[in-house]
Design a protein around this nucleic acid. Sequence first.
DNA 1: CCAATATATGCGTGATCCTTGCATGTTTAC
DNA 2: GTAAACATGCAAGGATCACGCATATATTGG
Lengths: 160, 160
Amino acid sequence: MHISRMSTLDPKDIKLLARLQKNGQISAQDLADDLGMSASQISRRRQRLEAEGYILGTPCRLNPDRLGLNVQAFIQVETRAQTNGTHQSIKRLVATTPEIVAAWTLTGEADYIFRVYCTDLAALNRLVQEVLLPHESIGRVHSQIVMDQVKDDTALPLPR
Amino acid sequence: MHISRMSTLDPKDIKLLARLQKNGQISAQDLADDLGMSASQISRRRQRLEAEGYILGTPCRLNPDRLGLNVQAFIQVETRAQTNGTHQSIKRLVATTPEIVAAWTLTGEADYIFRVYCTDLAALNRLVQEVLLPHESIGRVHSQIVMDQVKDDTALPLPR
DNA sequence: CCAATATATGCGTGATCCTTGCATGTTTAC
DNA sequence: GTAAACATGCAAGGATCACGCATATATTGG
């Protein structure tokens, strides 16, 4: 019998993932030269890592400034009653509002925090006044605007 | 004379960017079929969009759960005095600490907010106790752990 | 410790894909 | 209205990927 290894990552896997999360389009040959192995191995390892669920996808990162998305903010949201439909209701809101690019619930003052991109302060204000506050499940909101983006990778820390 | 257009985005550009920020590896032919144009045009438009700064890069997104990064948190950081070296000092800290994947300064209670990934609560605690609190520029910190990730795209809202 | 099986690797090849030149059609500017 | 700038499709050339195969290495079981 054999058990599909679901291998633990070896050092070459770690380096490969590190390179890929910097640049998902780097050629297998370049990676091969870099890691001291053949391009075909890079290709196979990459397929294996994807199949095993390490790689979620390879989206392009767009430039918010270039797109006129000049205002970035976090919006803390207090829900009303917290009936049992609240969470689904918020999920729908988040899914259908493109300005909300990410949303979490946190420990502590629980409720929700949204990360949003808008073209300007007026648009942010419209989002709050015309979309969030009128929403059935939302009580109060508190916006904090991003002044300085010190770092914004999506690069995760890797083992070792 | 001619002015390099720095074109405003036409509808095809918007659709192209939308597809690319879902999947940066989709083939030019698939995009061509999808948008009703030839693959060569897709290639050219993509090059143009990159050259004009709309596309920052195409990193792989890794799966935090699969990497054992089971704890995700936001850490609000209050700085000490705010001498003029403080910001540089924080920037260095952020740049050299892989668990901190993003960091911002916000309006209001100013100071900093870090987004961090750790393997477990013990690791998060070590980060706070052994890295952040001993740091010269950091006064107090307040950790909020992510309970539920409602949405985490990096997909920006596009015009139209 | 050895044999048998599974796994990892490099090379080479066929298929796929991207990119560029060129000719044509379309829009813009004067 | 004319000319220049621009966008487009086609086709060819070059690069890249992915797989089979043979070999080397590691792992397992007795």
